[in-house]
Simulated assay, not measured.
Amino acid sequence: MATPITANRLAAALRAEGVRVVERSGWKTHNRNHKGPWGPVNGVMIHHTVTSGTSNTVGIVERGYEGLPGPLCHGMIAKDGTVHLIGQGRTNHAGRGDGDVLRAVIAERALPAANEADTDGNTHFYGFECENLGDGHDPWPPTQLDAIERAATALCRAHGWSAASVIGHKEWQPGKVDPKGFTMAWLRERVAGRLKSKPSGGSSGGGSQGASGSTYVVKGGETLSGIGKKLGVSWERLAQVNKITAPYVITPGQKLTVPGKAAGGTYTPPPFPNGLAPGRSSPSAKSLQMALKDTGWLDRSVPLADNYGPQTQKAVTGFNRKHNLFTTGRPNDPAIGRRGWDLLHQLAYGN
């Protein structure tokens, strides 16, 4: 239980944790305090938006919609990992949920199943909406997952909470499914690990090799290819993370987000030209599944397995369709070929 932190302290806590922050106009006084109490606060709640497009999503969570006025969160976490600060105070994100869950959060113990809606969550939780369609297919980019982890950690650190104070909307209110695409157990594990060390804000200088969330300032005459070689990441991944498209022009003074190398970056390619295909258990599909998870194509709750099962097939099919990679020449191809394998691991690990 705690008094809510100030707007300035919230922004500072996020930046100290290495989060890229955009402060929307008027966010420090944008709230629903006239409709009910704000605080004491007890935890952080994570949502997905069921929307696409950062500009569109920011507008929705700021204004709200018919029957649910904005602000709909304290911060909106975009696909590129930027946290757009939307409101400060009471926001319309949590609704009514299970009082037993709140008591478990306060006690920092395992959560019971949410089966009642008897407690006002807008009073007790900070809320982060995360840009995602929530259909189980829309990927969660590593940069976005990293920002979710850092944002939740920042508030836990500011209040002296443990990772048990981080919950999903689906754990609070009966019938909710968000966030969909990763598990809250996974997120709490990541937050717990980050809380064991000091805040790791990104560098604003020349960048640091493989440092997730760091930035690199472009110098005159530099190219994405040259910067990628210097930092040990692929230029394609630099372009993807920073939303730079053809003809891939960068300018002196431009700040680039440097993607970190995800866990599991060492991998053994399957034999080609046959590649990996559904139903096979040799070679193992585990390296493929790790890369699919780290690029947001495969739900992190799916257990790693030697067998190339239906969920892996579905993830590969989506990846192939997105990048026009059809190993067999058929649409909805669930097999991964050499080009797909190389591109997937380049996006995931920069190698």
Rank of each mutant, 00 (worst) to 15 (best):
F182T: 00
G175F: 08
T143Q: 15
I148T: 00
F182E: 06
T153S: 06
E189K: 14
W186E: 14
A151P: 11
A147C: 01
I167A: 07
W172N: 00
D138T: 05
A152D: 12
Q173M: 14
A147M: 06
K180H: 13
R157A: 10
L155Y: 07
R157C: 11
A163E: 01
P139K: 10
C156P: 02
L187M: 09
S165R: 11
K170H: 12
K180Q: 14
F182Q: 03
G168T: 06
A154F: 03
A151R: 03
G160T: 01
G168I: 10
L145P: 09
S162Q: 08
R190G: 07
A147E: 02
G181N: 07
V166K: 08
W140M: 00
D138A: 05
I148C: 00
T183M: 08
R150L: 10
R150F: 11
L145V: 09
K176T: 12
V191R: 02
P174T: 13
W161H: 05
G160E: 07
G168W: 08
I148Y: 05
W140R: 03
A147D: 00
D146F: 02
Q144P: 12
G160Q: 00
P142F: 15
P174C: 15
T183F: 10
W172Q: 02
P141D: 02
D146C: 13
L145D: 05
G193S: 08
F182P: 04
A163T: 03
A163K: 03
K180G: 10
